[in-house]
Simulated scan of single mutants.
Amino acid sequence: MISTILAKTITLCTAMLSLFVAGVISIPQPSQFSDWTVACDNVLHCEAIAGFASGGSADEWTLHVTRSALPQAAPQVEGFPAFGGPIESGRIRFDGREEGFKFENNGQLVGDPYAFLSALARARIVEVMSHHGNVIGTLPSSGASAALRWIDDKQGRAGTVTAIVARGQQPATDVPPAPVLPRIAQPATSSAPPRLLSSSDVRTIRSLGEGCEENPPEDFPLGVETYRLDSTYTVGIVGCFLGAYQGPSVIVVIDEEGSWDLAPIELPEEMAEYRLGSPWQHMLTGAGYSSEDRLLTEWSKGRGLADCGTSASWAWDGEIFRLTAYRSLEVCSGAQPGTWPSLWQTANDPIGDGD
C-alpha cells in the first residue's frame, strides 16, 4: 500500500514539475460592466455577451456582439430569448420609440449595427415587440455604453469613424492592423495505428485521477480512446466519472514502447490557478481528439443550460499539448448554449474572421 501511494505521488510530482516550466500561458482577461461581459482575445477579436444580472427570465433576451480587429470590420449583432426560449422575430423599441430595427427569427439583427448599438448605449429601456405590437422581451442595456467603449479602446478605434461609442472623424486607416495569428508547429503525421492501453494501465491511470470510477460498469459511457499524434507518440483519453451532464477524463501520452505518462498540457493562467498541483492538471471535461484537425479538446459547461462555461483546444508540438483556443464565460445569465467569448486563438484553431 505504501509503495503504491509513493509511486502515485512521484508520478504526479514529476508531471507537475514539467508543467511549472512550460505549462502555463498568460491570456487576455474579460471585463464586466453591469449586465455586459466583454472580452478581446490575443488577436483583438472582441465579443460582448449581455444578459440580465438577475439571472434572466422567460421574457428577457440576451445579446451577442462580435467584431474582428480588421479596420473595416463591422460589428455583428444577435439577439435571443434567455435560456433558449422560442425565437420569434420582432421589432425593437428604444424608450418607447421604434427606429427601424428588428431581429429575424434566426436571431440576426436587421439594420445598421452601428446605429443600433449607439441607440442601445443611450437607452434606458429596450424592448422587443411582436408583429402585433405586444412586448415579447426586454434587452439588457445597463453597462452597454461602457462595454462598447471598452471594445472601441481595445481595438484602437476610439476617435475614428469605425468606433461604436467613442466615434470621431479620423479615418479607418488610423485603426491599427489586426495582429497576426500565432501558429503552433507540429511534428509530421503518421499513418501507424495508435498504441493501446492495457486493462492494468487503465486501472492505474484512473487511480491517478480525482474521483474516478475504479471499476466502471460495462455500459460506462466514458470509455478509453487512443489516437495517433505522430510517429513517436499516441494520446490516450481515459474516462473518469460521469456527473449529471458531463464527465472528465484523464489524458496520457503513450510512447512506441507502450509506456505512458500523464499528459503535459499548457493551461491558461486562470485555469492553472485551480488545476495546477492537483490531478485536474491532467484531466479534461468533455474531452475529445480530432485526428483531422489534430486537436485535443475540452467542452465544460458551467451548468446544464450551457449558458456559461469554458471550451479549449490544444495541439501536440512533440513535447507538450500547447493551447490553441480558449473560450470562457463565468457569468450565467441565459445566453445561447456555448456562446462563450474567445480569449485565445491560433491558426491551428481560428475563429475565421473574414469581414
Rank of each mutant, 00 (worst) to 15 (best):
D349K: 09
C332D: 09
E257M: 02
A82I: 06
Y289G: 00
K8C: 02
A7I: 02
L229C: 04
E78C: 00
T11A: 13
H132T: 04
I27G: 01
W340F: 10
I265M: 08
S313L: 10
I254T: 03
L296P: 01
Q76W: 15
Q336D: 02
C46N: 04
A48K: 02
E218Q: 15
G211I: 04
M271C: 06
E78V: 01
W316A: 00
R322P: 03
P216Y: 11
P177I: 08
G334T: 05
P179E: 09
P113C: 13
G23H: 02
A192E: 15
D317W: 03
Q169W: 13
A306D: 07
F321I: 00
G304T: 05
V253M: 05
L262R: 04
A39W: 05
R67T: 06
A82W: 09
G23Y: 05
S313N: 11
S328Y: 14
E256C: 00
V224T: 15
L229R: 02
P86K: 05
D35I: 03
N348S: 06
D293L: 15
R203E: 02
H282T: 06
D230S: 06
E270W: 13
M271T: 14
G100A: 04
S200Y: 00
D317Q: 04
T285D: 15
P86W: 00
S199A: 09
I251Y: 07
E104D: 08
P216E: 11
A121S: 11
A15R: 09
L12T: 01
E225H: 14
D153R: 11
P217M: 13
D153L: 09
E99R: 12
P350I: 03
E104P: 00
R149G: 07
G247H: 11
P113M: 14
V24T: 12
C332I: 12
L329G: 01
Y245C: 09
I237R: 11
A58V: 08
V24P: 03
A39F: 02
R67L: 14
I151H: 03
S57F: 03
I205K: 03
D153C: 00
V77H: 10
